[in-house]
């Protein structure tokens, strides 16, 4: 549990960080909250020769409005996310989910950028961001580009980030007023990754589901959008048969690994239950 040798860099601007990354090449890794990278380094599963600490870059911090979007700087911590009134009021699902991430100590250090950029299927925010239709801003030597969260995840720890690029902010469209939402996460204990989790954002009209998006965490090597499950509930009052159908449609796209949280069959089964419960709770909250 002792990391190997590395050099430490603390750039003051995104431009400097990007330059360091491109100059140092594959031996360099950006460091945000460190909750994924540092344990991997302690196990020597990651042995970067250079760490580029992003904590010195003021421009990567903070939450602001840009039209109908909330723009969250990559180095904004989960704690800061939880402390934001704007987040709590305009997209309460983010607040609800952030509270389910690890524990207060981790949330003081852990960042939104690190959580979404790492490509860890166990992280909660990626599925949330896909559900909310967020876009990630990636900056590299050749400039900036925006990639939808839904297109970002390609495999476990494998994302659309090109070598030399840094994820600098997340832009999230504010959901419709009166929307219903829920993040249902089954975990073994505080600090654990989800055995399975489901995010639901929906709107209701006349007692029927008008729009619905469903995201899934840790039931596949990437976060998932359960499009068929969402489609199955549109126009319904979420009766038992519909819920069953939606859960089955969601389970059909799940491919979790068997681990100490349980065998594949269990993780898929409870994944379906998380979808059902999130749909029910979201509907009960919709106005």
């Amino acid at each position: 549990m002792i990391p190997g040798p590395f050099s430490y860099h603390r750039p003051a601007s995104v431009a400097d960080a990007v330059k360091l990354l491109s100059d140092l090449g594959e031996d360099a890794r950006p460091l945000a909250g460190g909750h994924s990278l540092v344990p991997m380094m302690k196990l020597r599963l990651a042995t970067p020769a250079h760490l580029i600490d992003l904590h010195g870059i003021a421009a990567l911090k903070g939450i602001s409005r840009n039209g109908n979007n909330l723009v969250i700087g990559a180095m904004t911590t989960q704690h800061e996310l939880l402390a934001s009134d704007d987040v709590a009021k305009s997209m309460p699902i983010l607040h609800e989910a952030a509270l389910l991430i690890a524990d207060p100590q981790v949330r003081y250090r852990g960042t939104i950028g690190g959580n979404v950029a790492n490509g860890d299927p166990g992280n909660d925010m990626p599925a949330l961001m896909m559900t909310l239709g967020a876009t990630y801003r990636l900056e590299g030597a050749s400039g900036a580009r925006d990639v939808p969260a839904a297109d970002f995840y390609q495999g476990a720890y494998f994302t659309a980030l090109e070598p030399g690029e840094i994820l600098t902010s997340v832009s999230v469209p504010v959901p419709a007023a009166g929307h219903g939402y829920a993040y249902e996460k089954l975990k073994r204990k505080v600090g654990d990754y989800a055995t399975a989790a489901a995010a639901v954002v929906l709107t209701m009209s006349g007692g029927k589901v008008a729009t619905c998006t469903i995201g899934l965490t840790n039931v596949h090597e990437t976060p998932l959008l359960a499009a068929d499950a969402a489609k199955a509930v549109i126009g319904t009052g979420l009766d038992a048969a519909t819920l069953k159908k939606a859960a089955a449609a969601a389970e059909a796209i799940m491919a979790p690994a068997a681990d100490a949280r349980g065998p594949v069959e269990y993780r898929k089964h409870v994944g379906g239950i998380m979808v059902t419960r999130a749909l029910q709770r979201a509907a009960s909250r919709a106005k």
């Binding site: 524990d103 204990k189 505080v190 681990d259 100490a260």
Partner: peptide, 14 residues
Amino acid sequence: TGSFMDFFMPTAVE
């Protein structure tokens, strides 16, 4: 089960 991630060590919450 070589770490507290998988070796169940309850916190005050559990």
